[in-house]
Design a protein around this nucleic acid. Sequence first.
DNA 1: AGTTAAGTGTTATATTATAACATTCGTCTT
DNA 2: AAGACGAATGTTATAATATAACACTTAACT
Lengths: 171, 171
Amino acid sequence: MNTPAQASHDDSYASEHDHKKCVSEALGTAEHLCVVRGVQLTPIRHQVLELIWENHKAVKAYELLDRLKPQMDAAKPATIYRALDFLIEQGLIHRVESLNAFVGCRCSAHQHEQLLLICNNCQEVEERSAPEVMQALSQEIKQADFIVHSKALEIHGICVKCAQTMAGEQH
Amino acid sequence: MNTPAQASHDDSYASEHDHKKCVSEALGTAEHLCVVRGVQLTPIRHQVLELIWENHKAVKAYELLDRLKPQMDAAKPATIYRALDFLIEQGLIHRVESLNAFVGCRCSAHQHEQLLLICNNCQEVEERSAPEVMQALSQEIKQADFIVHSKALEIHGICVKCAQTMAGEQH
DNA sequence: AGTTAAGTGTTATATTATAACATTCGTCTT
DNA sequence: AAGACGAATGTTATAATATAACACTTAACT
Ligand SMILES: [Zn+2]
Ligand SMILES: [Zn+2]
Ligand SMILES: [Zn+2]
Ligand SMILES: [Zn+2]
C-alpha cells in the first residue's frame, strides 16, 4: 500500500531534509509538465523517475535496471535506456557525463542547464543555477563565436556534509 | 533530409594553421615536463601522444588502438588505457567526459582545467582558460562550501569554422 | 477494416573500460 | 654475480555501458 522505509536508512541528505517532499514535488512537476507538453509519462517512465528520486545520488543505468527488475521482471537494458532518454529529453533528469550516471533534476520547469557539484564521497549531486558563472560563460562563448547546443558543467569534490563528517572523524 | 555535409577533408583546422608547429610544441613540452618531473615518457606513451596530436579532434580510445596497431601489433586495450592514464595524470591530454574521448592539451605547462568548446560537427575541441568563468566558478563553489577536486567544463555546439561552412552552403 | 505512430518486448551486439596475473628490464643491494 | 625491487608492459579475460534491429501491441485516425 505504501513504502514506509524510504528516508530512514543511510541517506545522509535525507536525514536532514524532508525528502518525501523532494519526491512528491519532482513527480508532481514531471506529471504536470508532461500533460502540458502532450507527452506520455508512461508507467515505466514514471517508475524509473521514482527510482532515480530515491535519493540525491547519481545512479548508474544498470543499477536502475536492478532496482526496476523486482517490480518489472521483463526489464532489459533497452527498457531503462529508453526511459532515461525520454526523461532527459523532457529535462526531468540530468545525465552526469563525468560518471555515466543520472540524477533527478530539481529545476525541470525552469532552465535545465545547471552547475553540478558532485561529491566523490557520497555521490550526491547539488544543482546550482550559478547565474554569474552562466553570464561569464555566455560572454566567453560569444567571444569564441561558438554556437551552443548544450553544456556540461560538472565539479567533482567533497560536499560540505562529507567534509564535516571527515573533520569530525579527524584523520 | 539534409546530408551531414561534413568538412570534406579530414583536417579542416590543419588547413588553416601550421599544425606541425602544434605537434612539435606539444611533444617538446611533454618531453620536457616528463624529464623535469622524473617520469617516463616511454615509446608507447610518446606514440599515443603523437596519435592524439594528429589533429585537434577528440578521439576515442579504441580508435587510438586501431591507429596504434600498425606500428605495434601487440597493442591491446590495456596498452592504450595505461598510456592514456599516464598522459592524463601528467596533464598532457584532456579526457572529454561527455564524449568518452581524449584530446591533446595545449596548456600542459600551466593550469590544466580549461573550458572545452566541442564541435558536434567536426569534433574539434577548443580549450579556453576563460578566467572570468573560472573566477565566477570559484565564488560559486566557495558559497556552496564545496571542496573541489576537479572540473569538467564542456560546451557542445558548432564551432565558428563549421558555422561558416554551413552558412556558405545555404540551407 | 486499413494505416499510422508511439511505446514496449526481445535478442543480439557494439562500445568503453578494468581486473588479474605473467614477464621483462633496469637499478639497487648484498 | 646473485637476488630483490619497482616500473612498465604483455596477455587473457571479463565487467560495465550503450545501441541496433526487428517483432508486437495499442490507440487514434481514415
Ligand atoms: Zn531530497
Ligand atoms: Zn558528500
Ligand atoms: Zn594544430
Ligand atoms: Zn566544427
